[in-house]
Design a binder for these strands. Structure first.
Lengths: 159, 159
DNA sequence: CTTGACCTTAGATTTAACTCTAAGGTTTAT
DNA sequence: ATAAACCTTAGAGTTAAATCTAAGGTCAAG
């Protein structure tokens, strides 16, 4: 039997989080001491680990609540139901990755076009790309290069 | 000159969004009609497009506000400053992608281990994986296969 | 002159998952 | 017996970016 702080430490979460999970119906200790302290059993700890594992693969708490209720009533559910949830989540995750890949490609293109030097941003390719409609990002061509920093890669490049 | 609804339609955002951007200092039309209607200039429209382009590469509104203020005062900023912001965002995006890739791999593994059929979830590999500590996901081996659905791929696989 | 589409404001609500605060009761170690 | 470390509750705050609501003013057409 664990007190809330003990279970929290054991599973590396905050006590706040355990109370939050209780308030949202994910994990409610069956027992309380006379003075009202929550007492968690090993079974409660297992349930918490289930929650944390499900979180670790990307499920939201609402989805985890559903998974938990299925888990407690397995015989009335089919593999198709469970796999369905996983596959929906997989599709969501893949969609988010696709969006972020888009961001990543665009950001990389912006970053690569900019010299990143001490030159004034007056001709910064990044700002120009954000100002203009074009999908393409133009390389900088600083007409007034700084005399200092001779070791820095020049922003003048062919193209 | 555009009224708020016109600019909103032009740029495919809601009027609420434009008022929200104004409240947060991103886009404030210089003019109002006598009756108080916002009147946006072409310059305002360009500024909105800047905002939308920056959003499209993943910047938050707070970051976009910073980019806009740099853009209005370019000569006092260096390329390094601008590129720095892009590179920080790139790192954040890459980190998020890495996390989601982790989710994706785990979910795929869970999905692949489950037959997804009408079999009872009592021996569902996905639930078992969430219940147990092991990183590995075991394939299902339904001892009581359903007699119907003979066309469905069997959950019995070697391994 | 009235209907409908548009505009104004301030402020509340949404989503997700906590995180924190205040005010107080309990347990344990010294 | 008292201080430290723990626990309780209800409820507010956080983050981001809108989105919605209520109550009302403006404008063009018929």
């Amino acid at each position: 039997m664990y007190r809330i702080g003990e279970l929290a430490k054991l599973c590396e979460v905050k006590t706040d989080t355990l109370r939050f999970y209780e308030k949202h119906g994910l994990l409610s200790p069956l027992m309380r001491t006379e003075s009202g302290y929550r007492m968690y059993t090993e079974e409660d700890a297992e349930r918490l680990r289930f929650i944390l594992r499900a979180k670790a693969v990307g499920f939201t708490l609402a989805e985890i609540a559903e998974l938990l209720s299925i888990d407690l009533d397995k015989s009335n559910w089919a593999c198709a139901d469970v796999k369905g949830m996983v596959d929906i989540k997989l599709a969501q995750v893949s969609a988010k990755i696709a969006e972020l890949n888009h961001f990543q490609v665009s950001l990389k293109r912006l970053s690569d076009a900019c010299c990143g030097g001490p030159e004034s941003a007056e001709h910064c390719s990044i700002l120009e790309a954000l100002e203009s409609n074009s999908a393409e990002v133009k390389r900088e061509n600083h007409t007034h290069q700084h005399q200092n920093n001779p070791n820095k890669a020049s922003c003048k490049r062919k193209g």
